[in-house]
Design a protein around this nucleic acid. Sequence first.
DNA 1: AAGTGGTCTAGACCACTTT
DNA 2: AAGTGGTCTAGACCACTTC
Lengths: 293, 293
Amino acid sequence: MSYIRHIIAQFLLDDNGGFMVKSKVMSSIPSNPSSDPASPSAAAPGASPTASAASSPTFSPLYQQIKALIMQRLQSGEWKSGELIPSEVELGNRFKVSQGTVRKAIDELAAENLLVRRQGKGTFVATHHEARSQFRFLRLMPDSDQPQVTDKRVIELKRLRAPADIARQLGMKSGDSVVYVKRVLAFDGVPTILEELWLPGALFKALTLERLAEYKGPMYGLFETEFGTRMIRATEQIRAASADADAAELLAVEKSSPLLCVERVSFTYGDKPVEVRRGFYVTSRHHYQNELS
Amino acid sequence: MSYIRHIIAQFLLDDNGGFMVKSKVMSSIPSNPSSDPASPSAAAPGASPTASAASSPTFSPLYQQIKALIMQRLQSGEWKSGELIPSEVELGNRFKVSQGTVRKAIDELAAENLLVRRQGKGTFVATHHEARSQFRFLRLMPDSDQPQVTDKRVIELKRLRAPADIARQLGMKSGDSVVYVKRVLAFDGVPTILEELWLPGALFKALTLERLAEYKGPMYGLFETEFGTRMIRATEQIRAASADADAAELLAVEKSSPLLCVERVSFTYGDKPVEVRRGFYVTSRHHYQNELS
DNA sequence: AAGTGGTCTAGACCACTTT
DNA sequence: AAGTGGTCTAGACCACTTC
């Protein structure tokens, strides 16, 4: 109820089509708002907007609505990873808001690493195919600052029915099809990370061991380009563990050696979980780096 | 050299005292800029500012300069933790810039958790005496979401000469005086965290075991209120370890049990390190929680 | 020269809090 | 009623990039 008067004021102030943004946001939104700025729905000024405002308690500032509109374009794939999106002025014209409002929406999306601004060039959709975003999801750093050669070895890839805990974390039903991957990462030839992944089978039908093994570059880059699934956020739970026989062998450490156990759940647009990953890290020459602020 | 023309334009546009902000920022700054708006230093318009601009290659946008000015007030203790700072309009008047510019400066400081905005009330200096900021520096969470009773037990507090590695991390000389603290935290009666702290002796002269043991509330709150040292940022390095005899006894676990080893360096204003902390966490019923984005 | 994001200003109205 | 931060607009100029 808080933004009712605000919206009305907006409506009265706008000289053309200003109402559209709100009405579109309040209900669901056609794919392309720039198509026809002269197509207001029915309802007299102040009547319908007020009514729908009252019926929908989920109001948000204009820039948040613009942000949601932009996010929809990203999620739908209308603007793909790495691509240039329309300029702030252009988006302002499309959405019938000022450039400043678009700017504030993009500010937040850039802060969330969904978009990247480049002065003089434009605003781009973020991608995992970059040195910059390479280590955004891998916090394990060498104790010495030397850059290291990374070697990736896929141990196993298979389809299986999701165990209960994995299914729960992926928002699926127990027994649904998932892709299971097991691999080892080595730095400068030293095996350091053993990890298992579970991915929704429906999304990753075409993923094969060969495809994964031959792919150079970050795995999330592959997922983004080949499977239309972009990881935008993740949570990690870290525990201490001891190496079992299998881990000890694959990581070339003594059985019962201390290992860092990192359980990650990754999310794509709409906060939809699309990956569970359990990693065991050898931390004798590396550490998990975290910044608190 | 990049902002020279910008600054000149500023100077010419401002009708009174606008030059002050820049000159103060370029050189060092008197404690109170609001004292006398009609006291421009010498130099003809465009001449001196340009010169000092040219001599100082470290230019930044106006709002960054305002941010630095605000940060100085925080560091100097002119605005203390928990206090209300002047309103955006008032600061704009003091610094001779628009409210919008002050706003952008405060936006960043709020994003860095140095300031807290409260609509209708004003902007406050952040403090560690709050439920909100309680867990900002402790990422260990119970596996079950139950809130837990925390019990703190100080094992030891003494002065000693800084070991080489501690001294290096604190930016001190090896052998300088430091305060050493060892304590155990228990959740719901279960010992879970064993940690050691090293603090610069000069800053924490008055810290005693009694003072620390009897203090209720977060340790950083005590440091902030009683020792004028506010932690604003920290880095953590996490490794896997095994419990030695001492840790095993204090944490009531088997010797060689896996433990999370968390080494933290905390910083106060000016990125000055003021605490080294090494913690051993039992992660059988807790986990270190991290958000990646 | 034109287009983009980055900074700065000025003014308006809103929502929230306190007096 | 007055004061605060929150949102929105409009217009100006800057720095950077590309043509």
